[in-house]
Write a protein that binds this DNA or RNA. Structure first.
Lengths: 193, 193
DNA sequence: GCGTGCATGTAAAGTGTTACATGATTCG
DNA sequence: CGAATCATGTAACACTTTACATGCACGC
């Protein structure tokens, strides 16, 4: 029997509910918008997980904001379970960096396209950076007295630094690739300006 | 019909074979050791993928270094296919950072454990950093005249910078968490020094 | 009355990991 | 000759995504 890596969906769901009760729909948005910078859960995972957590008594279903909808509330046993899950060793996701994979085979891909990819990555990172900076300001103001604040700021800082890092790296890489003549082993690509 | 995200296993396999021919076993090691810093493929994916590539004429099976073993060689059509795959848009893996997930819920996890996790992450990054620095020196010397060198160095630099970044971030985060009293909402954990 | 957004779920399918199974070769 | 390493594969299963299906409420 293949011993499966523990899924961390439970952790994310219980964690989000530990901040405040919400509907499954809101939970999905919270995971997308709040944890989105370092975590993701697909829609189809959230409902089954909530069902399982309910059966185990870790969350309770209350009257929702609309008829037919339900708000989920974490129970004491749920909080204990969350603590347990958070204390489990981190199961690292296998690395899968599509940009580095392409760059590594840059000789086959062609310098021109490599530069293009680097510029795209840099632009992306710049957008993200602006987002993180705005977010940090907003959260600092809004949640000034929340005990969660330092933890949240820490994760935002990780995102900000990572974006800055990509920008600096892209510049370095562009400089390094600048020395290579553009027709090295370049693909037979008709599209050029 | 769920339109599946393209698997990039083919890309990694063809890419590795584009550097030089090898057996499936060696391929697995190359992917683990050479691409390992930014890519991973499980053993069970490599064989079926090689089989499919062979049926499509993108790789050919030659006499291997031992009886019963075969060395795989990329064909012209395989090189063309690799070029095609490398030019496809990058399918970003959904983010899943277990460390940030735990830190985000640090109030529940407890400051002490958060510090522990940060120190671990920092130590990891320091190990990696040393590895990258050694690797960069080694590759620079060994492959001095390889046309692949600048591309490879670029990916190593990404790893090195990322490790440096984690170290700096961990220090910042540790300082930030330094202000929080250790018994905030701390779990009932018996283990303490 | 109709579109948009809130709300809840299920089903099909693909991706990827791990355990299992087996054998040859080399080296001490 | 036994252990380590090279070598090749398969099968079960977990994980995750995405498409589909359905309905209510609210504003215009």
């Amino acid at each position: 029997m293949p011993m499966a890596r523990r899924s961390q969906t439970e952790t994310a769901v219980l964690g989000a509910l530990s901040m405040h009760p919400m509907t499954a729909y809101a939970l999905r948005e919270a995971i997308r918008d709040v944890l989105g910078h370092f975590w993701s859960e697909s829609f189809g995972q959230i409902y089954p997980t909530l069902g399982a957590l309910e059966r185990q008594g870790h969350v309770e279903r209350r009257e929702g904001p609309r008829s037919g909808s339900s708000t989920f509330v974490i129970t004491d046993s749920g909080t204990a379970r969350l603590r347990e899950l958070l204390n489990e060793p981190i199961t690292a996701a296998p690395p899968r960096n599509g940009l580095l994979l392409r760059l590594f085979f840059g000789r086959t891909l062609g310098v021109r396209k490599c530069r293009e990819l680097l510029l795209e990555a840099k632009a992306d990172a710049e957008r993200n950076l602006a987002g993180y900076e705005g977010l940090a300001r907003k959260i600092s103001a809004e949640e000034k007295d929340s005990p969660d604040l330092p933890y949240v700021l820490t994760t935002i800082s990780a995102g900000r630094r990572s974006a800055e890092n990509v920008i600096a790296w892209a510049d370095e890489a562009l400089a390094l690739l600048g020395d290579i003549p553009a027709d090295d082993t370049t693909p037979t690509n008709g599209e050029s300006s």
